[in-house]
Structure formats: C-alpha cells, structure tokens
C-alpha cells in the first residue's frame, strides 16, 4: 500500500513537472509573439509617419513657399502662408510623435531630451530630463524606454496639473532604472480604470521582464518607476 501511494505521488509530481514545463514554454512563445507584434506595430507607425512627413509635409512645404512668394504682392497671402506653416508644423509634430526618427538617428539620450522639451515647451509645466547611460542600449530596449516615457509624460501633461515633472534614467551594469515624478494631483491607483495606454505599457514592460511600479495618492503627485534588466 505504502509503495502504491509512493508511485501515485511520483506520477503526480512527474505530471506536474511536465505541465509546468509546457506552461513555461507557452509563456515564452506568447512573450516572443508579443515582442514581434510590437516590433511590427513600430514598423507600421514608422511607415505612416514617413508618409505623413514626406507626403503631406512636402505638399505643405511647397504651399507655404508659394504663398510666401505671393505675399510680396498681397499682404493677405502672408497670413495664409502662416496658416499653411502652422499646418506643416502640426503634421511634423504628429509624424515625430508617431515614430521618433530621432531615436534611430541620434540614440536614446537626445530622443528623451527632445521628448521632454517638445511636450512641455508650450505649457506652464517645467520638465527636467536627466539621462546617464554607461552602456550601449539595445534598439528594442531603447524603444521600450522611449514609449513608456512618452505614455507617462503624456498622461502627466493631460491629467496631472503638475508644476514640475522630472524624468531620470540611469544605467548600471545589469539594469536600467527609469523614474518619472510629478508634483500634480495624483490619483487613487486602485480606483482609476487603467486606460489602454497604461495597460499596453504594463504588458510591454512584462515582456521584457521589467518591473513597473506606479505610486500615487490624491494630492500627492505620481511616481512611476521602471526597472529593466540588461
């Protein structure tokens, strides 16, 4: 009888180990699929961004130039040229936010500085950006850090009512630490339904084994911390 029980337990343990292995494998497959999906999304956004910039952007450039030239004859065209130029600036901004070519062209540090500056320069909020990287960061991790920063900063811009925001990115030999703080309204993390943006970054962070930690209380500002293993 004792031996029978032993056998049954051994069997169950074997089955458990087998199921655990399958679960791990499937988890790994899902993660790799999610990463491929995001890479595809980034590529699609890059295409659309290029179409916007090179297509509509070039047309608006031509229009602005023509109207400026006509402005020499009739002052009313100067005003039209200004409107066309505003449309051009908007298209450019949209195109850049959709796919930050600066990340490919110059790397993570200039890209984050640009993000902080361009999101907040026409607002009353002050955004400080401190980036200290001691290693070269892989492209997919750079994109991850950039997209998380973009989502968190955009949320702060729309909802926080903060006077001051800071972004701090540091690297050590085995991890990256991103910290974004604001001194705004804050929120009750349990009460607020997570938007698509926040859920999507949480999923992305998970796929890279990153830890995402948001601390916020009404009236006490918000602090977002992300630790990414290298």
């Amino acid at each position: 009888m004792g031996n029978d029980n032993q056998d049954i337990i051994t069997d169950i343990l074997k089955q458990q180990a087998f199921l655990k292995k399958r679960l791990d494998e499937e988890q790994l497959q899902l993660t790799s699929m999610a990463k491929r999906l995001w890479a595809q999304q980034e590529a699609d956004k890059a295409n659309l961004s290029r179409e916007l910039h090179d297509g509509i952007g070039q047309l608006l450039t031509a229009l602005t130039r023509r109207l400026s030239t006509l402005g020499n004859r009739d002052p009313e065209f100067v005003e039209l040229a200004e409107i066309a130029n505003m449309a051009l600036e908007d298209v450019r901004h949209l195109s850049r936010m959709m796919s930050p070519t600066i990340l490919d062209d110059l790397g993570l540090k200039p890209a984050l500085k640009w993000l902080c500056r361009s999101l907040f320069e026409d607002t009353d909020m002050q955004c400080d950006c401190l980036v200290q990287l001691h290693n070269d960061i892989a492209d997919d991790l750079s994109t991850l850090v950039f997209r998380i920063s973009q989502e968190v900063l955009t949320n702060a811009l729309k909802h926080s009512g903060a006077a001051h925001i800071s972004l701090n990115l540091q690297s050590s030999y085995n991890s990256l630490l991103l910290e974004i703080r604001d001194d705004g309204n804050g929120f009750d993390y349990e009460q607020v339904a997570k938007g698509v943006g926040l859920t999507s970054i949480a999923d992305r962070a998970k796929a890279f084994d990153a830890k995402l930690n948001i601390i916020s209380r009404p009236g006490k500002g918000t602090q977002t911390r992300v630790t990414i293993p290298l």
Binding site: D105, P110, R117
Partner: peptide, 23 residues
C-alpha cells in the same frame, strides 16, 4: 530636414562645422 535643436547639438558635438535645414 530636421529642425529640432537636439539634432543640431548632436551634430555640433560630433564635430560637424555647420548645420542647416534643407529649406
């Protein structure tokens, strides 16, 4: 074609002697 200041700074720091927009 980029008019962002970060581009200009990066090119200056890299050792270029000048930066102008295509327009």
């Amino acid at each position: 074609m980029h008019n962002e200041r970060e581009y200009m700074e990066a090119m200056r720091d890299a050792g270029a002697k000048g930066y102008l927009q295509k327009e």
